[in-house]
Write a protein that binds this DNA or RNA. Structure first.
Length: 587
RNA sequence: GGUGCUGUGGUGUAGGGGUUAACACACCGGUCUGUCACACCGGAGAUCGCGGGUUCAAGUCCCGUCAGCACCGCCA
């Protein structure tokens, strides 16, 4: 029997058609003299009816069990009105079966495939091939395919070339811990799996490719989270001779088309842009969630002359006083406010002051230090009205930012201000080039060491390194960083100058980056690019809170593949061949 | 490296010192010609993640350990 139709596609208009279907027994309802089978294939589910008139088929139908693989031949029939099932897209019809062939049997599954049934995550991962049979997960696989297809379409339209780069690569300093792969042909030496194709794509620019992209697998040997797997996929893009607005327009077109075609969501272009400093001041984070307001306001001037010693002291020490106006937040309970206070403290603040505005005056932790003129100034500055609550942090600027940023997120959650199904995207630009690493006692690149400083900031590289801004940009969606990129350094002297600033040993630079520095000497064009987190994007589109759900074969938090049981020990001969001795082989 | 949560028939849960470990779904057998979470009747199935301890007595309390998850550190 050869398939003529897909189960999920049959409609009333197919009534009368003879059809051969294949798929899995989703459910069987045996009424004794009449057997119904829900047949499931990739396209969906359709009901089969087997009556005793089809003698042989009926005999087979009685032996069917869940997840048996079958082929059936029959006739599509319109259902009588009272037997229509509105829950199925094929509910108008059923297939009257004439013949059934069992293509394969199935043991009873370790867990049910009903979509709403919660099942232990470890069990799902062990039997991932069964978990993936769930229609919901099938849907995320399809969604992911759609996203990459659209990405390829849009970038191809703009003349980008998809180029593959090596998986067996070289370990370089900076950044995450590498996964290492021992070399058999050169015992004692190791490849590293790429943390990203960063250097390759820049070298492709030197090679004159001008416009490159890749759906690139990346590897980082760091501890995992709901949104972090040891291997993950980036939409990796690089472009020569670009102007930033032109490049951002292409990325925006790509993202907008992905949202439009997969979810029917229109993202307004151009995307809003916010400098890092502005994002930090107004939202307390470099990845602000714009789905709700609750912006942070500087109220330092208002408190400069008040009796509130805590605030005055913070200001005197060069700090700030900032506030969030929580409109209509009178409903917040003491418990909510305590939680907000704890959140602020967890992010370094000494405390969280608050003021509830009443029809006349105010109550709250600092109410008795706030005379009417100050209250009036606060109302004017923040727009606060009776019924609103103001939350304050007085501290060093960085602490006030981080603490109020955290308070803002929690507040939005508690006040139910995070709208379902909304997508708010923006660019955050002009990040600092460097940050100070107290452990290593040196400056390290915030993005990566190939990022170009802003032309006007080069001068500060040696004198005020933390003031140097980078030609960098992140793409932020609903509070998640979904991509980041930069214009790159393309002159050797500039690159060397930055390496020097990072305190990299010259011999090490020569050994690890010599090839790259040399490449920059042979007419490297100005270029830049971006890398977007495909897994996160698909997860956001699918409304999933962890990226395991959008990866076909993900790993656990401890980096294990529970299905294959990787990683695993290897035979001693394999190790010998590689010149490797494993210490502490206990157990 | 750290913190927290979870671990009991195949699955999801209940049981929080005491005698036969409970329920639902799934599974097996039976009845049933319009079901679609079919229904009804009957049945089988668990040394409670693992190890140690406390106790007359341990799914239950304690310690350790393993696994999964969430988070901090970490991850340009």
């Amino acid at each position: 029997m050869h398939r003529t139709h897909d189960a999920g596609t049959l409609r009333r208009s197919d009534a009368g058609t003879r059809a051969t279907l294949v798929g899995w027994v989703h459910r069987r309802r045996d009424l004794g003299g009449l057997i119904f089978i829900d047949l499931r294939d990739r396209s969906g589910i359709v009901q089969l009816v087997v009556t005793p008139e089809a003698k042989e088929a009926f005999r087979v139908a009685e032996t069917l069990r869940s997840e048996y693989v079958i082929a059936v031949r029959g006739t599509v029939k319109a259902r009588a009105p009272e037997t229509v099932n509105p829950k199925l897209s094929t509910g108008d019809v059923e297939v009257a079966v004439e013949a059934i062939e069992v293509l394969n049997t199935a043991k009873t599954l370790p867990f049910g495939l009903a979509d709403d049934a919660p099942v232990d995550e470890a069990l799902r991962l062990k039997y991932r091939y069964l978990d993936l049979r769930r229609p919901a997960l099938q849907e995320t696989l399809r969604l992911r395919h759609e996203v990459t297809r659209i990405v390829r379409d849009v970038l191809s339209r703009h003349g980008f070339l998809e180029v593959e780069t090596p998986i067996l690569s070289k370990s370089t300093p900076e950044g995450a811990r590498d996964f290492l792969v021992p070399s058999r042909l050169r015992p004692g030496t190791f490849y590293a799996l790429p943390q990203s194709p960063q250097l390759y794509k820049q070298l492709l620019m030197v090679a004159g490719v001008e416009r490159y992209f890749q759906i690139a697998r990346c590897f980082r040997d760091e501890d995992l989270r709901a949104d972090r797997q040891p291997e993950f996929t980036q939409i990796d893009i690089e472009m020569s001779f670009m102007s930033l607005p032109e490049f951002q327009a292409i990325v925006e077109e790509m993202i907008a088309e992905v949202f439009e075609k997969t979810r029917g969501i229109r993202l307004e272009r151009p995307f809003p842009r916010l400098s890092y400093d502005e994002a930090m001041d107004r939202y307390g984070t470099d990845k602000p969630d714009l789905r709700y307001g609750l912006e942070i306001v500087d109220v330092g001037e208002i408190f400069r002359e008040t009796e509130l010693q805590v605030f005055r002291r913070a200001l005197a020490l060069g700090g700030v006083v900032r506030a969030i106006r929580a409109d209509g937040a009178a409903a917040l309970s003491r418990k909510d406010i305590a939680a907000l206070e704890a959140e602020a403290k967890a992010h370094g603040a000494q405390g969280l002051a608050w003021l509830k505005l009443e029809a006349d005056g105010a109550s709250g932790s600092i109410a008795r230090f706030v005379p009417e003129p100050v209250l009036a100034a606060l109302r004017a500055k923040t727009g606060a009205e009776p019924g609103d609550v103001l939350f304050f942090v007085a501290d060093r600027r960085e602490v006030a930012r981080a603490a109020l940023g955290a308070v803002r997120r929690l507040l939005a959650e508690r006040l139910g201000r995070v709208p379902d199904g909304a997508f708010r995207i923006l660019w955050v630009t002009d990040f600092p080039l460097l940050e100070y690493d107290p452990d290593e006692k040196r400056y390290v690149a915030l993005h990566h060491p190939f990022t170009r400083p802003k032309a006007e900031d080069w001068d500060k590289l040696e004198t005020e390194p933390l003031q140097v801004r980078a030609e960098s940009y992140d793409l932020v969606l609903n509070g998640y960083e979904i991509g980041g990129g930069s214009l790159r350094i393309y002159r050797k002297e500039d690159q060397l100058r930055l390496f020097r600033r990072l305190g990299l040993d010259e011999a090490e630079v020569a050994e690890k980056f010599g090839f790259f520095l040399e490449a920059l000497e042979y007419g490297a064009p100005p270029h830049g690019g971006i890398a977007l987190g495909l897994d996160r994007i698909v997860a956001l589109l699918a409304g999933r809170s962890n990226i395991r759900d959008v990866i076909a074969f993900p790993k656990t938090q401890s980096g294990a593949d529970l299905m294959m049981e990787a990683p695993s020990r290897v035979r001693p001969e394999q190790l010998a061949e590689l010149g490797i001795t494993v210490r502490a082989l206990q157990g």
